[in-house]
Design a protein around this nucleic acid. Structure first.
Length: 696
DNA sequence: ACCACATGCACCAAT
DNA sequence: TTGGTGCATGTGGTC
């Protein structure tokens, strides 16, 4: 009996065709097919959804999305703010606050309605400026307040998953550890349903242990074969929504898992509960993303159908049960709510217009560099204009869309017979069902017809335009964008893929690149790594080609986060100086011998300029007060206002300093009217003197 | 109590 | 008179 099971490869994703919506195959197919029945796959195989001698989803390259990584919930084009951003807190330089932006996760419990979750999720990604500190404070105080239901614990655990730090990249749990990669598939004969007995589970137990042993896996899951069953069940139920790529990329920090497990009692049941929560967490993201796509695909012949959750017997995927092709997809019982439109996730960083996405990621929007770092005696603010007329290239957008916001909808053109051209996309990467004679029964994929393809493309365009609108807010404001700036980086920094492969490289426009300049909180001075520890790894990256990805990742390697400062009124006022947090300044910036300080050429990542900023200190009591002076133009050029923040990086290869102004979204009158909350206002003259800089 | 920092404001130089 | 510079001081956080 032939069971067709074909997986999408990366190229397929990049082609913008046949996305994960095609991940629709009965699990028995997965279980029963033989390895040689797979289509040849490229180097970045997405799915190894076979238990046993095949990888079970979670395998492939090492580009893991961390579950802590907000990017798996949203595309944030913004380079991550260090998890432990000492300066993130407006009032304390020593705060260990998790980066606000990165901790705002659309995290919901499944118990709440999907619609509520959706809206909350959406809102979570758009933290209004006025709420930013509040949210951050809440986080600092122990997390977002739990919902007023009986899911407090659950919520907290989920919250942990969302907010856990990801500093130690070596401490992740890979869900694939639930399965042994070289296990004989026969041992995992779950073909005729997953109603596994305890014995079955027990048989699997050693697998988990072995895996843990070999991989320093999570002891938390050791010996608990039921977890594997749970996981498998979940996969079966959500195979349509959770792509293998997504699953593969999930990594959890071990300590977080273990901590969460403890919070759940540390019992076997607790572990199971935790696993469910984790899966639910993943599921929510993915399912909602799909629903978004579903909502967007209004012209889809496949209208959403609320599954009969009570009749989930039809979802048992028993051997002889072929999913009804008329059913667009099956909702997981864990996601028992109707679809709700969810806007594409956005980074919380606001646009000046108060809407949309701030694309100001220098590493997506493009850093630019010109001259090497030079400390001058010129205290005047100078800049060297660079070509900043970039805009987010459509190719980039489309690429991103294709990979990130691409609809994940299993379309309803799934009744397509098995007459597909072997050369078409579907034949290359589809998930197919075959009847018992080996004939393909249905094609659950979406690329069966040109019509379906057109529709997908239309959806993609819609989503793309949606995304682009957000980006436009940013790019219009800052007149910048990514690829060009990045090219300039390569050129001006005398670095290019050719001559400096390990350093700054040109980032192809087709591969919008997240920059992950997150210093480990515990070692903020460490070099930036290619893995963004738990923040905003972007979804589109995981679908990008390995080559592009690796190329982009190289860019980050020489960047080192130095410090960040949330701008106060006095920082953005006419004084043209920004007070720096003392601790970070002393530790990460050049040591100052005299109070006059030094002038540092800082390359403005955001607007492609180089500013000569004076770094100095004032004696203050028995201490010092560190300042950046001549920042007025920088602030104005970036349109920075109170509540926005700056980030200073160092390019360790070029010996440069990079500065970047990051705007925080302002929404509504609340943000507009925000004033320094705790500071008293004194004379009117001083107020006028420190009047906010008008938005540019 | 100490420290960091936001900012008020006095002082000074330039216009 | 205006704008820039630098110090002083109050507030809030941390130890």
């Amino acid at each position: 009996m032939k069971r067709g099971l074909e997986f999408h490869d990366k190229q397929d994703l990049e082609d913008g065709e046949d996305g994960l919506e095609n991940v629709m195959v009965s699990m028995e197919d997965i279980q029963s097919h033989q390895p040689n029945e797979f289509e040849p796959m490229e180097e970045e195989q997405i799915i190894g959804a076979i238990v046993g001698d095949r990888e079970f989803f979670l395998n492939g390259d090492d580009h893991h999305l961390d579950m802590n990584d907000a990017s798996i919930f949203a595309c944030t084009d913004f380079p991550p703010i260090p998890h432990d951003f000492p300066c993130m807190s407006s009032s304390s330089s020593t705060s260990s606050a998790p980066p606000l932006a990165n901790n705002i996760k659309p995290f919901q419990t499944s118990s709440s309605s999907s619609s509520a979750s959706s809206s909350n999720n959406s809102a979570s990604w758009e933290v209004p400026k006025s709420d930013a500190e509040d949210v951050n404070k809440k986080i600092l105080e122990g997390g977002i307040p739990p919902p007023e239901d009986d899911n407090c614990l659950k919520f907290n655990v989920m919250e942990d998953l969302g907010y856990m730090d990801l500093i130690d990249a070596n401490e992740f749990w890979d869900p694939s550890t639930l399965f042994q990669s070289d296990q004989n598939p026969q041992d995992y004969n779950m073909s005729d349903s997953v109603q596994l007995s305890q014995d079955d589970n027990q048989e699997r137990k050693p697998l988990l242990e072995d895996y843990d042993d070999q991989n320093d896996g999570l002891s938390f899951f050791q010996g608990n074969g039921e977890l594997a069953v749970i996981f498998f069940e979940w996969l079966k139920q959500n195979k349509d929504y959770i792509s293998a790529e997504d699953m593969r990329s999930i990594k959890l920090k071990r300590s977080t898992i273990e901590s969460a497990s403890k919070r759940l009692g540390g019992t076997k049941e607790g572990k199971k509960q935790l696993l469910r929560l984790i899966l639910q967490w993943v599921e929510q993201y993915q399912l909602q993303k799909k629903r978004l796509s579903e909502a967007a695909a209004s012209d889809s012949p496949c209208q959403y159908q609320e599954p009969n959750l009570n009749s989930n017997a039809s979802f048992q995927y028993n051997t002889n049960v072929v999913p009804d092709p008329s059913t667009c997809f099956y909702l997981s019982p864990w996601m028992p709510t109707p679809p709700t439109y969810i806007p594409p996730p956005e980074p919380f960083y606001p646009t000046p217009t108060g809407a949309g996405l701030v694309g100001g990621d220098p590493y997506c929007n493009g850093p630019s560099f010109t001259p090497p770092l030079s400390q001058t005696v010129n205290g005047n603010m100078e800049y060297q204009t660079m070509d900043s007329t970039q805009s987010w290239p459509p190719s980039q957008i489309s690429a991103m869309e294709a990979s990130q916001y691409r609809p994940l909808i299993p379309e309803n053109d799934c009744n397509v017979a098995a007459n597909a051209n072997p050369n078409d996309l579907f034949s290359q990467h589809p998930y197919q069902l075959f009847d018992e004679n080996g004939d393909r029964l249905v094609r659950l994929g979406s690329s069966a017809t040109k019509e379906a393809r057109k529709k997908r493309m239309a959806r993609s365009r819609r989503l793309s335009s949606h995304h682009y609108r957000h980006l436009s807010h940013q790019t219009q404001h800052q007149s910048q964008s990514s690829d060009q700036s990045l090219r300039m980086v390569a050129e001006n920094c005398t670095m290019s893929p050719a001559n400096n492969p390990g350093n700054w490289v040109y980032w192809p426009s087709a591969a919008p690149s997240p920059m992950m300049m997150v210093p480990p909180p515990d070692a903020p001075h460490q070099h930036l790594t290619t893995e963004r520890p738990g923040m905003q790894r972007q979804n589109h990256q995981k679908h990008g080609s390995a080559g592009k990805r690796s190329q982009g990742l190289k860019m980050e390697k020489n960047l080192k986060f130095l410090l960040q400062k949330v701008l106060k009124q006095s920082d953005v006022g006419n004084l043209g100086r920004i007070v720096l947090p003392k601790k970070e300044a002393e530790s990460h910036l050049p040591e100052l011998e005299s109070r006059d300080g030094i002038t540092i050429a800082m390359e403005d990542i955001g607007i492609s300029r180089v500013w000569n900023i004076k770094y100095r200190f004032w004696p203050n009591n028995k201490s010092r007060m560190y300042l950046l002076e001549n920042t007025g133009d920088f602030v104005r050029a970036n349109g920075l206002q109170e509540g926005d923040f700056i980030v200073i990086y160092a390019d360790t290869k070029c010996g440069k300093y990079l500065i970047r102004g990051i705007k925080v979204r302002q929404t509504g009158p609340k943000a507009e009217g925000k004033k320094p909350a705790k500071k008293k206002s004194r004379t009117s003259s001083s107020t006028a003197k420190c009047s906010p800089v008008a938005p540019m």
